[in-house]
Design a protein around this nucleic acid. Structure first.
Lengths: 97, 97
DNA sequence: ACCATATGCAAGTGACCACTTGCCTAACAA
DNA sequence: TTGTTAGGCAAGTGGTCACTTGCATATGGT
């Protein structure tokens, strides 16, 4: 579970996808492909993006909802918050003996 | 730079090492090896751990100081804090129109 | 000087990962 | 039904990664 989150974050393309979804939720696969191509210059195939989305969904970072022949993707930051407090101590501000 | 941090966090052994250093800073390579073996059941070679530490150091997550023939390792969480606020919005607590 | 300790460097190997290509299914429109 | 659009499944490939093995270096003790 935790492993899935970190593995998902390890790839720069997947982080770009998270950026895109953070900026605009509910995009379809083709929308994401188009925006990665036009705005980030990424020339990846549709299947490549689809596989990345599958990894992100397995990690719980992206949730999907089907609607007709479309499949919309939403960002879910909850796994990030849960996983990142691991080494960040509850900030004892320097004077806590 | 950012890529190095996420790549470093992608491996479970490296995360264990960060756990160890979070609990006790300033351990040498052999100390880390011993504690990973006894407390986590990890039977890795010294070189494996050494290479992991090199990755963590390249990411800035671990800082080292030499002292004679010893090399002590310290945790540095600053790259984590800098990198993880990327998708976690500055927590607008629900009533911020 | 000698020897043990603590660490570094380098090549080799097996597994995993990102990406592609090709075909297939499902939904909407004419 | 036929055609088009959105998406899924599966096999293949090149590259990267984690780990090992073997040798080398450096520090400290005696």
């Amino acid at each position: 579970m935790v492993d899935d989150v970190f593995k998902a974050l390890a790839d720069p393309t997947r982080r770009r996808i998270l950026d895109e979804l953070a900026e605009r939720d509910g995009q379809s696969l083709f929308e994401i492909c188009a925006r990665l191509a036009t705005r980030h210059g990424l020339g990846l195939s549709r299947q490549a993006i689809s596989q990345h989305l599958a990894v992100l969904e397995a990690a719980g970072l992206v949730q999907t909802r089907r609607q007709g022949r479309y499949k919309f993707h939403d960002l879910n930051t909850e796994p990030l918050e849960r996983v990142m407090t691991r080494w960040l101590r509850p900030d004892a501000p320097e004077g806590t003996s």
